[in-house]
Write a protein that binds this DNA or RNA. Structure first.
Lengths: 192, 192
DNA sequence: TGAAGCACTTGATATATGTCAAGTGTTTTT
DNA sequence: AAAAACACTTGACATATATCAAGTGCTTCA
């Protein structure tokens, strides 16, 4: 499904056939069944991954074996552990598929070559990282300044697609609250 | 105090005199007294700012007039609102000085020129953004998976310098807990 | 230098959210 | 088609953290 990626790219930057071809050559497609891992804690993440279909999550597991979801990502989004990629250190996160999915993997090395060779591509990548950073600042702000109900409302507003696509207990995990609390919040919201 | 910045840069990238000079030319120094604003909510942030001395904080104010600190930054760190800078939108944050401070400001436009002209500088900036992003992911992880005591312990470990430099109620604000709770946690920790 | 304002602490109490446990309906597996 | 697993809900109760209020020392600055 390179077409999905090609469309995504051409939507945002100008690429000639040769450039597009260069990108295609280094993409490795990978299918994931629901529940299958893309990355496991302790492994080093060496790729940039673009999702062409499906839905994945990044999560951590603490001492008490509780899972905490850091990110959801669906088709037309990137996923991975940039910290592990940047430093070559073992990842502290897991990534797995919430639905049957397909991702395109580009190795760190190939990706670096693309960035050097295609300036628009480099600009796009920088822009995406900037946006991701802004989004995480925003999420930190929510997490320290809102109560559970407000966090859920904010999530619904910011990521309505995700909210309607992933199981409720995963939304709770993403928000840092229990599934029971989320269930009660939803019940109260219905009455309003 | 351009020397502080020059030292910082030369510590990380190779720059010839001409390049360093080019950077110096676009730096505007600004002194801030304790409590003075660098950015106020509603204003658009148009710079990149490097701190040469002092300590600043970025914070938001919610409906109930509660302040929530998103970031502390001291000498040799960057500060600003990248979201406002990127999109040209009014900032939702405030930045002010916790101590008398000095910052170097580089306008968005000048900064873009530097990035184009000095590839090592561009690489450095990208690296910094990547690191900032990784750090915020990490903070999100803490905020959804740790209790108050663990959050404080993590903060002490990650940012010991800051922990010993800013007032305790600001640490509480940064962690998303009340000053009273932090005071009690510290008391318990002393006994252990 | 002394009054005012901060920063921090401590106690009593309130409240939001978590935990545990059971029950219902739906989806998946065999 | 039955069994098992899963997702969600609901109630009773527990607990971490917030709130409110007062008290103690430090700074600051007039």
């Amino acid at each position: 499904m390179f077409e999905v990626f090609a469309k995504y790219l051409q939507n945002q930057i100008q690429l000639n056939d040769q450039e597009l071809n260069m990108i295609q050559k280094v993409c490795v497609s990978k299918r994931l069944r629901k529940n299958q891992y893309l990355l496991q804690e302790g492994d080093v993440w060496r790729y940039n991954a673009f999702i062409t279909s499906g839905c994945l999550r990044t999560y951590s597991v603490n001492d008490k074996l509780q899972e905490h979801i850091l990110n959801f990502a669906i088709e037309n989004y990137w996923i991975g552990d940039r910290e592990s990629l940047l430093n070559g250190t073992p990842s502290r996160y897991n990534i797995d598929a919430i639905e049957d999915s397909e991702v395109l993997l580009i190795s760190k090395e190939d990706f670096a070559v693309l960035m050097k060779s295609i300036p628009q591509f480099q600009d796009l990548v920088n822009l995406i990282i900037e946006r991701s950073f802004a989004a995480s600042q925003d999420r930190i702000n929510s997490s320290i300044s809102l109560n559970a109900e407000e966090k859920y409302a904010t999530f619904l507003k910011r990521q309505p697609k995700i909210a309607n696509r992933v199981p409720q207990h995963m939304v709770a995990s993403y928000l840092g609250i229990t599934p029971e609390t989320l269930s009660r919040i939803r019940k109260l919201n219905l009455k309003k």
